[in-house]
């Protein structure tokens, strides 16, 4: 029977359990951060297979270093620093083949404009399931077209909801650099979304 108490534990407490040999603590960490870490790695690599490989290695390194983990900084800062180093090292090895979805032709997407506009205006009518699926594809394409630095930073702001200071610490850059990347990422996204809208007409 899984230990439901673990769901109420903070991350630092889970790490103590993991260091003490509690297997369920590892499962809880995995459950908590699986999608977030894979998404983080995907923002770097733009390839799902690579993202999963690197996410797997990230979690295993968390386990291997559990006994040495000191909660000096937030757990997520430590976790994503591990992921960042793995992604950067993997990127240096050479060209990664980007996921096919980025290379798909734009195609006719008459509803794309309306979906983007409705997403921009939070108060508009909710999307249908089919529209939600289309929206995910559109957003992912737009994000994938961002330059590397802008993409990784914007994903950490908008998806992981991290403050600039934490992002700067994880990526090893200044807060000023983060501010600039976010600003430019939004400008680039605006142009990309205009192109997506133009393609759909």
């Amino acid at each position: 029977m899984p230990d439901e108490r673990l769901k109420t534990f903070g991350d630092e407490q889970l790490m103590k359990e993991l260091a003490a040999g509690n297997h369920e603590a590892f499962e809880e960490l995995l459950r908590r951060y699986e999608t977030q870490v894979i998404t983080f790695c995907y923002a770097f690599m733009r390839n799902r297979d690579s993202a999963e490989d690197l996410a797997q290695e990230t979690f295993l390194r968390v386990f291997r270093n559990a006994a040495r983990y000191m909660p000096v900084a937030k757990f997520t800062t430590w976790l994503y620093k591990i992921a960042t180093n793995l992604c950067i090292n993997e990127s240096k090895k050479g060209q990664i083949r980007h996921s096919r979805s980025l290379d798909e032709p734009a195609g006719s997407d008459p509803d794309g404009t309306r979906i983007i506009e409705r997403l921009a205006n939070k108060g508009d009518a909710p999307l249908t399931e089919a529209e939600k699926h289309e929206a995910q594809t559109l957003i992912e394409r737009a994000i994938a077209h961002l330059p590397d630095d802008q993409r990784t930073t914007l994903v950490m702001v908008e998806y992981h909801h991290m403050p600039y200071q934490e992002i700067a610490e994880i990526l090893g850059v200044t807060v000023s650099a983060i501010k600039m990347r976010v600003k430019r990422a939004r400008e680039t996204l605006r142009e990309t979304l205009k192109i997506l809208q133009a393609e759909s007409k």
């Binding site: 999608t35 992912e140 908008e158």
Partner: peptide, 19 residues
């Protein structure tokens, strides 16, 4: 508006074999 659009992204879920 741009922020609202991007924040709708659900991220990348792991494959069935990942966990």
């Amino acid at each position: 508006g741009i922020k609202n659009i991007v924040q709708n992204w659900e991220g990348v879920k792991g494959s069935s074999k990942f966990r």
